[in-house]
């Protein structure tokens, strides 16, 4: 059963049809998945205080009910290394349509993956894992499986990716924690089965994996029935 908190996050977003990043991330945090540490605020002072608390560099992202793909409207700034840069990013984003504040979050380094879900008409919930980032639709290096995922599905998804060498530590890089990724995939799979027909699709993009953790740095939930 979905937790009450998750159900209310979904129902609050029902008129818009999709959950903005802060609410979407909360859904996954409640389900036990690792999510970046972040603050959602409309006040620059609070943003700066949080940034110094978690330590620069930080990431700033726009929150707007009118913006589904943030990169398309310059709504994502990475590698902000001081208060001044944060202030500039904040100011620029405040002019984006539907501005409802900014997310300030920790910078996580590692390999970018996409973890997604789609409610397929013929097969019900399916799960997609692949090379993440803004170019996912160009490279289309993905593995698709019907949910719920079994252990063997997860193994074969990882094996089938072209980017597999990147996960295993390509050219001197540290390999990612496959255990952390598997744990995330299993938790994600259970969650999407519980969504039943409420959710139409999900993008967790990127999920950043490194030697110690696999963390959701951006999340979008599109609701069904619109």
């Amino acid at each position: 059963m979905l937790r009450e908190e998750v159900l209310s996050l979904l129902s609050e977003a029902s008129s818009r049809g999709w959950l903005m990043e802060p609410q979407a991330k909360e859904v996954f945090r409640l389900a036990g998945l690792d999510v970046t540490r972040f603050l959602w605020t409309e006040k620059i002072q609070e943003a700066a205080r949080f940034a110094s608390e978690i330590g620069y560099p930080v990431v700033a992202k726009v929150v707007s009910p009118e913006v589904i793909h943030k990169s398309d409207v310059s709504g994502v700034v990475l590698g902000i290394s001081n208060d001044k840069q944060l202030g500039e990013a904040f100011k620029a984003m405040s002019t984006i349509r539907g501005f409802q504040g900014v997310i300030v979050e920790e910078t996580v380094r590692g390999t970018e993956l996409i973890l997604g879900m789609k409610l397929d008409k013929q097969f019900g919930p399916i799960i997609m894992l692949g090379t993440g980032g803004t170019a996912v639709e160009i490279y289309k290096d993905v593995a698709i499986r019907m949910a719920p995922l079994r252990e063997q599905d997860i193994e074969s998804m990882l094996t089938s990716l072209k980017a597999r060498p990147l996960l295993e530590g390509y050219r001197g890089a540290e390999p990612i924690s496959v255990e952390a990724l598997k744990t995330m995939l299993l938790a994600f799979s259970s969650l999407v089965m519980e969504f039943e027909n409420k959710v139409e699709s999900i993008d967790l993009n990127p999920v950043i994996c490194n030697a110690s953790r696999c963390v959701i740095t951006d999340a979008r939930i599109m609701l069904a029935g619109r």
Binding site: G116, M128, R220, M222
Partner: peptide, 9 residues
């Protein structure tokens, strides 16, 4: 307007 997942899958 769709998610990347819906678009690729």
């Amino acid at each position: 307007v769709k998610s990347h997942t819906a678009s690729i899958a």
